[in-house]
Design a protein around this nucleic acid. Sequence first.
DNA 1: AAAAAAGATTATAATATTAGAATAAGAAAA
DNA 2: TTTTCTTATTCTAATATTATAATCTTTTTT
Lengths: 110, 110
Amino acid sequence: MKGEIVALETEFFKALAHPTRLRILEKLAFGEVCVCEFIEQLDLEQSNISQHLAILRKQNIITSTKVGLKVMYRIKYPEVLNVLSLVREVLAKQLKESEELIKHLTDPFE
Amino acid sequence: MKGEIVALETEFFKALAHPTRLRILEKLAFGEVCVCEFIEQLDLEQSNISQHLAILRKQNIITSTKVGLKVMYRIKYPEVLNVLSLVREVLAKQLKESEELIKHLTDPFE
DNA sequence: AAAAAAGATTATAATATTAGAATAAGAAAA
DNA sequence: TTTTCTTATTCTAATATTATAATCTTTTTT
């Protein structure tokens, strides 16, 4: 029971633990995006982008609809974006702290 | 610039993307824990636990202090726990939705 | 000082993830 | 209906992660 929840959480974090997938989500934060745009903007092989989209889809983080030849992707649960911004907050706090350490190193008598 | 932020985020998610490390954080949510307790409760090799602790330490998520022979670990930025609970919320929402799908499958005429 | 206890580190074999190339599948246009 | 366009899938080689075993390191007992 508890182990299965941890497993779900793990898979979720794994899905987010790749720069390409984070960049995809960043773009989707502004709304629907078609695969062709990702190909244009991310400067990666089409097949690679498609693989990363598949991972996010499998994790139920994004969904797609086919519109003619194109496939439009969007974020399925907007709460995912809150996770991303919360992580950025933690990182900001971490960086601020090391910044202060540097300050003390360079101006030790202030 | 933007790429480096994404890289930081990626490393952060990677640090959380393992069941053992999530279990460690779960235990640390209640307060300080010594390595010996992890060894006892997680039923894994000592060296393996130590490796996972090192990954969380390197990511600046936890810190340790030595007390005699023992080493006590604790969460450094409590905000990390908010990330975990937010993720659980997303998972809950996802599961609730698939639960409703099952309901419609089994009682299609309700 | 030698032995023991608690953790950390290193090396390595097994496994998993990733990127790129090739191919397939689907829809629309010619 | 053949061709073209857009995306998905499969295969594979390269890389990264992981767990175990063995080896330190540090501190405390004896």
